[in-house]
Every structure is written in C-alpha cells, then in structure tokens.
Amino acid sequence: MTVAAIKEYTGRARDAVENFHGNQLLFIGWEDHLMFCAPFAFPFPPTMRFGDIVEKVLPGAYGYHPDWARIDWSKVAWIKSGVPWVPSFKHSLAENGLGHKDAIRFRTPGLAGIGGACS
C-alpha cells in the first residue's frame, strides 16, 4: 500500500527536478557547526563547477562563523548520503555524480565550533 485511498491513487511529486527551471537542489551541511541550525538547500545548474560552490557560494552562507576562515580544504572530509565521498573541485555537479536533492556534508578536522561545543 503506497497510500490509503478509496481507489487507485498516484501523487504528483511536487519537487520533481523539472520544476526548478534548469536547476537541481543540493543540500549541504557543515558537521559540528550547529550555529547554522540545519543543512542548507541550494538550487544549482548541474553544469556548475563543484569548486565554485565551495569558493563562491559557501563563504556567503558560512562566512559569519570564525571557524570558516580557518578551514584547511586539503583536510576536509566529505560525506554523501552518509558514506565517505571525494568530490572533484574542477568538475561539475553532474560529473561528480550529484543528482537532484542529494545531501552532502563536510567535516573540518580540528574545528569543533564555538567553544568546542559543536556550535
């Protein structure tokens, strides 16, 4: 049973990729920095270079945090759908295998938020 209904019933996925005018959603979370209360949602074209996200978009979203400027990007560990994953900064989202509504997170070793409290 995929829904309780009086007859055969199919829902329409409201967030299908074709509704985003050429973009796809990407969710990004920064581990151990809960001052940002939840992972972020972004609409990006699949042709966007992954490095552009890190270099041009994320500073606007995370730059307020004092840890942001201290990140050593060569040591950052990425996670996709809960498992370790290595992105290529010079390739696009599509080439990195990132699809619509994928959720990725990054851990920044040595940085544990405000007062070391993961804030």
């Binding site: 995929t2 209904a5 019933y9 829902g11 409201r14 967030d15 509704n19 005018h21 949602a41």
Partner: peptide, 20 residues
C-alpha cells in the same frame, strides 16, 4: 514510507521558493 504517494506531494516552503 508507509504512504509515499501522499507525502511526495508535500508543499515544502523552501523548495517552493526555489521553484519561484
């Protein structure tokens, strides 16, 4: 997972904003 055909229709404000 018990009723996916219902919840795929959720009107999520963030996603709606990004859909314009």
């Amino acid at each position: 997972e018990n009723e996916p055909e219902k919840y795929v229709q959720a009107w999520l404000p963030v996603n709606q904003i990004y859909q314009g």
